[in-house]
Simulated assay, not measured.
Amino acid sequence: MRVDVYTPLLLSLLLAAISPAVGRRVAPALAARVLTTAAVVTAAATVWSLVLLAATLVNDAPPVVADAREDGRRLAEPVPEAVGIVACLALALVAHRLWRAVRAEWGTRRALQRLCAGHPGDTELIVAASPVPQAFAIPGTPGRILVTAAMLSALQPVERRVLLAHERAHLAHRHALLVTAATLAVAANPLLVPVRTTVTFLVERWADERAADAVGDRTATARALARAALTAGRVKPSCALNFTDRAVTRRIAALQSAPPPHLWPVAAAVLALGTLPALGAADATGDLLRLLASVLT
Rank of each mutant, 00 (worst) to 15 (best):
G23A: 03
R25Y: 04
A27C: 03
P28Q: 06
P28H: 05
A32Q: 03
R33T: 14
V34W: 06
T37P: 00
T37L: 13
A38R: 10
A38W: 04
V40T: 07
T42L: 07
T42K: 01
T42R: 05
A43N: 05
A44K: 06
V47P: 01
L52H: 09
L52T: 05
L52W: 03
L53W: 02
L53T: 01
A54D: 10
L57R: 13
V58D: 03
P62C: 11
P63Q: 05
V65R: 15
V65Q: 14
A66S: 13
D67N: 12
E70G: 01
E70D: 10
E70I: 12
D71F: 09
D71Y: 06
G72A: 06
G72Y: 09
G72W: 05
G72T: 05
R73G: 02
R74Q: 13
A76Y: 02
A76C: 02
E77D: 12
A82K: 04
G84C: 07
A87T: 10
L89Y: 03
L89T: 08
L91N: 00
A92L: 15
L93Q: 09
V94I: 00
H96E: 04
L98Y: 00
L98I: 13
R100Y: 00
A101D: 10
R103S: 13
E105V: 07
G107Q: 12
T108K: 14
A111W: 09
L112A: 13
R114E: 14
C116N: 02
C116T: 15
G118L: 11
H119R: 15
G121D: 13
E124I: 09
I126G: 03
A129C: 05
A129P: 01
P131N: 08
A135Q: 06
A135F: 05
F136I: 05
F136S: 04
A137K: 06
T141H: 14
G143K: 10
R144P: 03
R144K: 12
A149G: 15
A150H: 06
A150S: 14
A150N: 11
L152P: 08
S153V: 05
A154E: 09
L155P: 00
Q156L: 14
Q156W: 03
Q156K: 12
Q156S: 12
V158W: 00
